[in-house]
Design a binder for these strands. Structure first.
Lengths: 234, 234
DNA sequence: GCAAAAGTGTTAATAATACACCCATGC
DNA sequence: GCATGGGTGTATTATTAACACTTTTGC
C-alpha cells in the first residue's frame, strides 16, 4: 500500500462555522480550545479527518461531538492550506458552515457542551486563520442566499414574514421595502400560510408560514430574487 | 513537532481540468497516466501537494510541469474525498479548473508535452473519479459564467463578438439572439472596439474588440446578464 | 385612545424579449 | 451576382422599484 512513495502526508482537518439567528442579529457558535497549541482561546469547532471517513462525514461528526448538533444544514466552504497556518504541524483544513435555528438548540449547546453564542460582530479574535474562515463563510452565505433559497434554515419550522425579512436585513445589513419583499416572497410559491398567528412580535400578531418542503427541495438550486440589486450588497 | 498524536495523515493531491475553446466547441486537455495504478489510461493533470506549498501553488506547478501552461486562469473547484476513490492509498484531491485560449498553446501542449485536446463531449473515460471532476467543473463553469465575466479567458486577447457569442452558445449548448446578445455585451462597458477587423470568419469581417482590463479586473466579482434565464440553463 | 407592528395596491421606470432586414465582401 | 456571415433598431412585455395608509390589538 505504498504506491505513492516519497509523497508528503499531511493532516486534513475540518472546521465548522455555525451561524444562528436570534430574531434580530446573526450569531456564531464558538468553543474554547482545550488542547495545545492555543489552548484556552476561542475557536471554531474543528477536528481531524479519520480513516474511512469523507469530509462531510467528518464535519457532521465534529459538529455532533462538540455541540450535539445533528442533521443540520451544512455546506462546504473554502479550503485553508497556507503552509504555516497551524504552527504545530502541516494541517490543511476544509471549512464548512452550518445554519441553524438558534432557539432550537440554544440551551443544549451552551449547557451540555462548552459552546457559546456570540453576536457575529462582537465575536472575539479566533485562533489561527479562523477569523478568515468566518469572513469567507459569511461572504459565501451572502452570495448564495442572494441567489437561492437558503436562509429558511435559520428560522424555526413556522415563521412569520416580518421575521424572515428581519433575517435578510441582518444578513445584508440593510433594509428592504416590506411591501416589495412580501410580494416577491409570496410569488416564489414556497410558503404555506398557516391559520395561526405569532403574537410574540406585536400586539396584532403576524401570520405564521411554513415552507412547502417539496417545492423547497426542488428549488434549492433555483434562483431567487428577494434581494434588490444583489451586486450592490455582496 | 507531533502536537496532534494519533491522527491519520493522508495524501493531498490537486487535479486540474483545463478547458479550451477552439472557436466552435469546448475542449478539454488530458494526459496519459504514466505510473501505476491505472497506468496508460487518460487522466486529468494531477500531482501531490509538496512541503511548504499551498494548494493553488501546487495546481500551478502541476499545470506547468505537465503542460507548460503558466499564468493561466485557475479556479478552485470541488474537493474529492471518498475514502476509496484511489485504490492504492487514501488520497484526497482538490480539483481546479483552468481556462485558456486553445490556439495560443495548442502546439506547445501537444508537441512539447504528452497532453492531448479532446472535444468535451467526445472525451474518453478517465481514471478514478476524474469524470466526476470534469462534470462538476463544467457545472461550476456554467454557473459562474452565467453570473460573472469569465469566458473571456477562453478567447485570444483580441476577439470578435460573433466569436464570443459562439463561445457562450457552446458553453450553454443553446443559441442566443445576436441582437440582444450584442446589446447586452456592449452595455457592460467591458469592451474596447478596435479599428481592425477579423476576416477569418467571413468575407465582410467582424470588428475586433479587446477587454478593458481595468474594468474587467474591477468587475470580476460583478454581475453579468448576458444569459437569458440562467436558471433554465444551469 | 394610542403606540407599535402587520398587512396591503398602484404607478412609474427599467430591463428583457421577440423579431427582420440591409451591408460588405470574396468568390 | 450571389452566397455568407456581420451589423443594426423598434415595439411589446415583464419585472422591479418607489411610494403611504389602514388594520389590529394590548396596554
Amino acid at each position: 500500500m505504498t504506491a505513492y512513495l516519497l509523497q508528503q502526508p499531511v493532516l486534513l482537518a475540518v472546521d465548522c462555522i455555525v451561524f444562528g439567528f436570534d430574531g434580530k442579529d446573526l450569531n456564531i457558535l464558538l468553543i474554547k480550545r482545550n488542547f495545545d497549541p492555543e489552548q484556552g482561546r476561542w475557536s471554531l469547532m474543528g477536528g481531524f479527518l479519520k480513516k474511512g471517513e469523507s469530509l462531510p462525514d467528518a464535519a457532521n461528526r465534529v459538529l455532533k461531538t462538540l455541540t450535539g448538533l445533528e442533521g443540520v444544514y451544512l455546506e462546504q466552504s473554502k479550503v485553508f492550506c497556507e503552509p504555516d497556518r497551524d504552527p504545530a504541524e502541516r494541517v490543511i483544513s476544509m471549512s464548512y458552515f452550518a445554519l441553524i435555528d438558534i432557539n432550537k438548540y440554544e440551551h443544549q449547546v451552551t449547557e451540555d457542551y462548552e459552546a457559546k453564542w456570540f453576536l457575529l460582530d462582537k465575536k472575539p479574535r479566533l485562533v489561527f486563520d479562523h477569523d478568515d474562515m468566518v469572513r469567507q463563510a459569511l461572504h459565501q452565505l451572502r452570495y448564495k442566499a442572494a441567489l437561492h433559497p437558503l436562509l429558511f434554515e435559520l428560522l424555526p419550522e413556522r415563521f412569520t414574514i416580518p421575521q424572515l425579512q428581519a433575517l435578510y436585513e441582518a444578513v445584508y445589513d440593510t433594509v428592504f421595502d416590506n411591501r416589495n419583499f412580501t410580494r416577491k416572497l409570496i410569488s416564489t410559491g414556497l410558503l404555506i400560510k398557516q391559520t395561526a398567528k405569532d403574537k410574540s412580535g406585536s400586539k396584532k400578531g403576524a401570520y405564521l408560514y411554513k415552507l412547502d418542503k417539496r417545492k423547497y427541495k426542488k428549488q434549492q438550486g433555483a434562483f431567487l430574487n428577494l434581494i434588490p440589486r444583489p451586486d450592490k450588497l455582496l
